[in-house]
Design a protein around this nucleic acid. Sequence first.
DNA 1: TTAAGTGCAAAGGCTTTGCAGCATA
DNA 2: TATGCTGCAAAGCCTTTGCACTTAA
Lengths: 149, 149
Amino acid sequence: MLELLVRMRNIRNNASGEMVGHPVTAQRRLLLDLIRGAGGHIDAKEIYRRASSQEESISLATVYRSLRLFKELGLVDERRLGKVRCYYETKRSVEHQHLVCKRCGKVLEFESPLIGELVAKAQREYSFKVTQAELCIEGYCRECKKKDS
Amino acid sequence: MLELLVRMRNIRNNASGEMVGHPVTAQRRLLLDLIRGAGGHIDAKEIYRRASSQEESISLATVYRSLRLFKELGLVDERRLGKVRCYYETKRSVEHQHLVCKRCGKVLEFESPLIGELVAKAQREYSFKVTQAELCIEGYCRECKKKDS
DNA sequence: TTAAGTGCAAAGGCTTTGCAGCATA
DNA sequence: TATGCTGCAAAGCCTTTGCACTTAA
């Protein structure tokens, strides 16, 4: 946690080239804590709901503004899973992808070196500079598969 | 084209088990034509813009309702590329994925058998019944890469 | 002290829906 | 003729923004 806050405080260069920081406010600390504690796959509304219960006056606007900042600083990843909503999770060292159940909404994590190969292929064949690769697999999880049949 | 309309007309079962169809209206014909003619990656607003120029009174609601029907009938695929918008394209035999340029918005198509392997792995390891797999790669295309550096 | 963050409320963009009238089969 | 599609306008959902006030450093 500490290192994230340090990173927040020392990340920009101002006009004179000095390193200047983003103030570490109580709200930002709380939100980052919540996202880290959520273990991945939490959306803005749920972050707001949990934050409100600890800090009644926090606003949804602050949640979105903080999420944008965290993204820019590389502290969290934003993923668009399923239909509409964005989900957030703190950045992890190992790349992973998601399986989303269309019936119960459960999100499973999924890892494979093949993703890296796909990215490499895109770079090679299209001279494309890849900044992000997202595989979203939709379907039905083990339990929901049974229930439906 | 013809076969798509036939499909639309004969796709449902009513309460008595007879096949009944969705009426083929002028609007649906026009919209399906436009989507097929667009060669992929067209969004609802653009579909509406083009449709309006041929049929002034058509409404955006009809565009969205038709898109939903086409999806349900399996006539078109809906893909969420980049940040927010959905793009539509007529269903093709070969599965493919997309590379989206963050600078100019261009969408490149991308094919690889590795996707199939990933899906197979998900099914195997998680007992997951996969209905859709979408890989969205973001980054910078050849031209924009040059311009930026 | 001062640049930057915050809450609030309003607005924005995309998509869906209620309703009365109209068209397809 | 009867089911169900259409246009219109309003609403819904998620996200962003303008403004005046407050706060971290």
